[in-house]
Write a protein that binds this DNA or RNA. Structure first.
Lengths: 270, 270
DNA sequence: CGATGGTTTGAGGTCGGTCAAGTTAGGTGG
DNA sequence: CCACCTAACTTGACCGACCTCAAACCATCG
């Protein structure tokens, strides 16, 4: 029954190569706004007037801090390639992961309100980001409706993502949170052209647990449960989604093992 | 020992009058940008050039919807006076309260990303809001650095508030969430000139529970526990904070009843 | 090859959920 | 003004999902 799993962490090395294959070959110290726009929003068409604008690139190694909370807000960052976690640390020293930005997503927008970054941002993998001085971005947006619109959209995206996290934390049981998390990652990878059914979790179980408001042991147990149910495969940090529709059901269903019949709720027409 | 509480819900009617005393006397159908700015940011000084700009006002009764999720995003709203809840309803019909906007706070910013409002917004009390068509706001902000800055700050405020909620849901036990909630309300009332130590919870226990990711019974029990500990007084929806420093400790301490000694954690210097 | 950080799995305890009963507050109509 | 009705709140008893503590396993890297 467990034949495949017996050679425990042997299998899907191909997953990694699938994600690595899109790494940029060149070592540009800066990139043009056209490429930036393509990364942030593939459908975007950049106006001619903005063709020669470019932004510097910054590289970070796995484990490095990209930002520290409390530092003065002066720029936002677009992830060109790589994997990050953003987190808040409270006075007691416990941390809450708030997001896992990946290629094509923005970092640092939360500093705008107070003038200081509110989160620590740590690279989970060797990564490169495009540095966008915010004052410059605001200047450009002032004269260009398309860029202005993009900026607003990025804000909104950030806001709704955080809202979704709060919803998950507020009303889902542990297994539904894990399923939601896997599906969310899957979709975001798919949007960036990676595989939506096989990927690598660059973060630790503790990071996942912090993000989902549960303990790392619960994360591990839940993943094992999903494996036992045949919905996913787990080889260490390598994940394969085997039954996405079923996972989607886990997202809102009471629980995993209770399974069984769907129960209908009548709703008064008053 | 319970002498004060024996006449159960008799006492602090004065709380309500304290909050009501600031209601606007006039029935203006529109307000100038100067007043809008004063509501949103008391320290702001409005440039001369924007003096004659004004926005319409909309009234809603308690229980009315100000916005429905899915409706087309076209305006944001500044609460002039009143009390709201914003919530998401998932496909199963369960709802998650995401915020309780009060006087001086913004509603509807979450629609910018997708072009549709993401939340339902319900008035918990008779309220008036200032209707700010977003296209118009963006136009004005384009030509006026001060307004642009204000708009960004409002976004940031929204974002960090939602992040704080996620943190509370992710790592605090129930009593700490309730204490945090009370203190947050207290501060926001204080900022608006209301009493920071006595106020009325216009929302139900179920709303509070939804916001905090716990059940209404737990809310009720926790409030009772805080009363027993002498930190607050509760007379139905009337709340009096009696020991704010102690409440603040509840915010990050393990729990309520365990009290006792502070335990220190050593942290490696690696 | 040992050391270290990450992961899995188990056993037991607890916080908060569920179910239920009883009380209070507020509004409506007689 | 009172009777009634409903929604909201409180409190209790029980239970289960998740946490805590602990041991063992595994992978990576010096």
């Amino acid at each position: 029954m467990l034949a495949l799993n017996s050679t425990t962490h042997a299998k899907p090395i191909y997953v990694q190569s699938a994600q690595k294959s899109r790494l940029p070959a060149r070592d540009n110290a800066s990139v043009g706004l056209a490429e930036l726009a393509r990364i942030l929003d593939p459908e975007a068409s950049v106006p001619e007037s903005l063709r020669d604008i470019s932004f510097p690139v910054r590289r970070v190694r796995a484990g490095d801090f990209l930002l520290r909370s409390g530092a003065e807000f002066d720029a936002v960052y677009a992830v060109r390639c790589g994997f990050f976690k953003t987190l808040r640390v409270d006075e007691a020293g416990t941390e809450q992961v708030l997001a896992f930005p990946i290629t094509g997503e923005m970092i640092g927008l939360d500093g705008i309100g107070t003038g200081k970054y509110m989160t620590d941002v740590v690279a989970l993998d060797a990564s490169t980001v495009i540095v966008i001085p915010f004052a410059r971005l605001a200047n450009l947006a002032r004269d260009n409706a398309w860029l202005e619109r993009l900026l607003y959209r990025l804000f909104g995206r950030e806001l709704t993502c955080t809202q979704s996290l709060a919803c998950a934390l507020g009303l889902l049981p542990a297994d539904a949170r894990v399923a939601t998390f896997l599906l969310d990652l899957s979709e975001r990878f798919a949007q960036r052209g990676y595989s939506s059914s096989a990927f690598v979790l660059r973060m630790t179980r503790a990071d996942i647990g912090s993000y989902l408001g549960i303990k790392l042991e619960t994360v591990s147990r839940t993943l094992s449960g999903l494996v036992a149910a045949g919905l996913i495969e787990v080889y260490g940090k390598n994940i394969v989604l085997r039954d996405i529709p079923a996972l989607r059901q886990c997202t809102s269903m009471p629980a995993l093992k209770r399974g069984g019949d769907a129960r209908f709720e009548r709703r008064m027409a008053a």
